[in-house]
Structures are given as C-alpha cells and as structure tokens.
Amino acid sequence: MKRTGLLQTAGLIGLIAMATTATAQDDSQLVVNGEIEMVTDAPAPENIGGLKTIYSGWRFRQSEMQALQTDDFENPGAYAIDEGVEMWATVEGSEGKSCASCHEDIEDSMAGVRAVYPKWNESKGQVMTLAQQINDCRTEQMGAEAWKYDGGDMTSMEAAISLQSRGMPVNVATDGPAADAWAKGEEMYYTRYGQLELSCANCHEDNYDNNIRADHLSQGQINGFPAFRIKTGKLTQTHNRFKGCIRDTRAETFSPGSDEFVALELYVASRGNGLSVEAPSVRP
C-alpha cells in the first residue's frame, strides 16, 4: 500500500517534470529554415501592466512541437502559404482584379504589413484588422464577395500576407486614434467572463507557465497567428481562438469580426510588441 503510494508520487513528479520541460524561461531559440532568427522573449511594453518579460507561445511548447516550426517542410501550417499566394493572383469580382492587380508582388508590397495590424484606418474612422482590410479590398476594389471572417480562404490569405513579415517585430500603434479601441481591449482583457468568472489575465498574466491539468499556460500572445493547431488540424485565426477561450469560461462568447474582438486583438497584439511575427506558428 505504502509502496504503491510512493510509486504513484514518484510517477506524478515524473509527469510534472515532463510537462514543464519546455518552460517560458528555457533558453531555446527559434530559428526558421536555418535563417530567420525569431525574438521569442522581450521586455514587456511600458503600457502593459503585470508583465516584466513577454514570451512567444513557442517557448511554452514541448521540444517536438517546437521543432515543427523550425522548418517550413515540417510545418503543417505551411500549406496555407501556397493557397494564399495562389489566391493573391486570382482575378475575382466585377472589376476583373486580383490582389496583385493593385499590390503587385506580395513579397514586396506586404512586407511589414502584418506587424502593424490591427491598425487605425483614417477613411473608415475605425481600427481595422488585417482580415477586415482584406475583405474591404475584396468588396470595394475588386467587386468580389466578402470572405467569411474566419473561413479557410481568409485564414490562408492572412497567413500568406503575414509570412511576408515573418521575423519582423510586432509593432501595433496603441495611441492616437487607436487609443479608444486599445482601452476597450484592455478592459476586456481584465474582465472575468462567464460562469467560471475567468479573465484573460487570470490565466495568461497571473498564471502563465503553470498548468491547468495537462494544459501548459502561455501568455496568450498572438504574434504567431494564424497558428496551426494540432488539436484541430488546421490554421486558426486570432478571433477564432478568442471565441474558444471565452466559450471555455462558460460564457456567451463574441463573434469573429465583432467590434469587441477587434478591440481585444489590438490590445493583445500590443502585449506582444517586440516579439517577432511568426505566422504560421504551430501550437497545441
């Protein structure tokens, strides 16, 4: 009896040790394709309370999963890049245009774009996400149908555009005309939603690097989105992840593309200002 107890205890300690092998404080460094050096930790931005250092979600993953992101031939999310690049040159809509008709080469015109979104749009008078900007181009410039906000086409296009900023530091503006949306996002981040009364901060600020059962909590950074999720087997957009997270507090969640999630995305993106754009990343 006692021996069983001891064995179980030893086993449990073993499991805990395994589960915490890849902690945020480990010094693994992410280099993609042997050439793109990613910043996976950085000093926290000054307007972010509660954190001294920010860490990419990559730093919280087991070494096997970390490895998948180091080589595009291994990365299960890389399929979307080809899809997105193909769609970039595909003519659609009443104006007979493709993305390339106006923006020409994706590698040149989209370099650095992901890093600064969500971003204030002066003519629209609102903060817009990359997905909203893509749909605006489709409906206003191409005369094409808007894509579903978090559908496969949109996610692939976002991934292809994001790829052109891979390795660049996230640098979203939080002041000026974006300040109101940013403040709304900050308030949401600390709101305890749902029957479980959990805020984003409860898990991702106060308890990152701790475990909820087998889940190793990260800081919830979104610099790697769209991210390939092993759990769902596909690329996942930021708003889709937000929707699932808030649902898991046993709350009435928000919709992808809603004003609430645009504000939350701006705020959460700003918490990662200084980390590298990683899309497509690989996450559990």
Binding site: G194, Q195, D248, E252
Partner: peptide
C-alpha cells in the same frame, strides 16, 4: 481566481455550459 461552485447569479455574459451561447433557463450552479 477560483470559480464559484454554488452560485447562479452575478455573472458577466453567463453561457449555456461550453456552447458559447447565452445561458437559458437550464442554467444551474456548477
């Protein structure tokens, strides 16, 4: 941070279990 296991009111956007939809009249304590 601990959820309240015997409470039915005072929540922000309470949901119908893990569906993501709003709570309805089947809502009970945890």
């Amino acid at each position: 941070m601990m959820p309240s296991f015997y409470k039915v009111s005072g929540f922000i956007r309470p949901g119908n279990a893990y569906t993501g939809k709003a709570a309805d009249d089947t809502f009970t304590s945890l």
